[in-house]
């Protein structure tokens, strides 16, 4: 109870600050309250991503028992510097059109599994996304599987940023859990006015507390999910699974069920640039 009180007071102060500065489009909005930085990668060292922070996932998901990563994706992930590297202060994930291991595209996927996992907090990244149909970059969180005792979607998934390369002005934030996964997941789009996500960097984040996940883009809160929302969406069937440690994933998928295949206008290589990933408590 005390904790909740604290949460209420803090937002009030911040929203007052926003009122005074007059920069916020919606003065009543409380976007982020957690400011104690507990984990970050600013991608300041050139070369392969810091191995104390990131695992480089390779393959097409077969090893994990989900070929095509469960979505009929067309890429295989590599740890090749041409697919994943840090340069000039930015993590670069590159999707290339090249045949490897029976797949037509290569790309990269990194995660913090067993290196950094956290329950609750504010997870934020500054990202420039790629362009073109079939590109499907993401910044997301997956729940720890408790040494294999839990399987998806029971582990829970929080998609902080997903984007389809042929819808350049929109991105979406989503949660998956038992009874609300895949096509039945709970999701909301955010549309940029007079701009495109692939034209520059944007900040994508969630602030995740015991009974709420707030999704924001560039300081705009656009989705706030609670156990009550999950209950409403699933007629009371579903369970709120977001009270265990989750880890961070960054990747570009190519093709698959959601984005569809690249077309003749999709140019390769395509890159996702990540300026930083930060976690606050």
């Amino acid at each position: 109870m005390k904790k909740i009180m604290k949460y209420i007071i803090q937002p009030l102060i911040i929203s007052l600050g926003l009122l005074l500065s007059g920069c916020e489009s919606n003065e009543k909005q409380t976007v982020a309250t957690l400011t104690n930085l507990v984990w970050a990668d600013e991608f300041d060292n050139n070369g392969s991503p810091d191995s104390t922070k990131w695992n480089l996932v390779t393959g097409d998901g077969t090893e994990q028992g989900i070929p095509g990563w469960g979505n009929n994706e067309l890429q295989t992930y590599t740890d090749n510097p041409e697919n994943i590297t840090v340069q000039n202060g930015v993590l670069i994930i590159t999707a290339k059109k090249e045949s490897l291991e029976g797949k037509s595209y290569t790309s990269a996927r990194i995660n913090t599994k067993d290196l950094y996992q956290q329950k609750y907090g504010r997870f934020e990244a500054r990202i420039k996304v790629p362009t073109g149909k079939g590109l499907w970059p993401a910044f997301w969180l997956l729940g720890d599987n408790d040494d294999g005792r839990l399987v998806w979607p029971q582990v829970g998934e929080i998609d902080i940023m997903e984007y389809l390369g042929d819808k350049p002005t929109t991105m979406f934030g989503t949660v998956h859990g038992p009874g609300y996964s895949g096509g039945a997941s709970i999701s909301k789009e955010y549309k940029l006015a007079n701009n495109r996500f692939d034209n520059g960097f944007h900040i994508f984040g969630v602030e995740w507390s015991p009974n709420r996940i707030n999704f924001y883009v560039d300081g705009d809160l656009y989705q706030s999910l609670t156990p009550e929302n999950i209950e409403e969406e699933t007629n009371g069937e579903a369970e709120w699974v977001f009270n265990r440690p989750f880890y961070i994933i960054l990747n570009i998928a190519v093709g698959g069920n959601l984005p569809g295949s690249p077309n003749e206008d999709t140019s390769f290589p395509q890159r996702m640039l990540v300026d930083y990933v930060r976690v606050y408590n």
Partner: peptide, 10 residues
Amino acid sequence: EKLGTTKLLF
């Protein structure tokens, strides 16, 4: 118009 939503691909 100033749309902001067009992108020079090449």
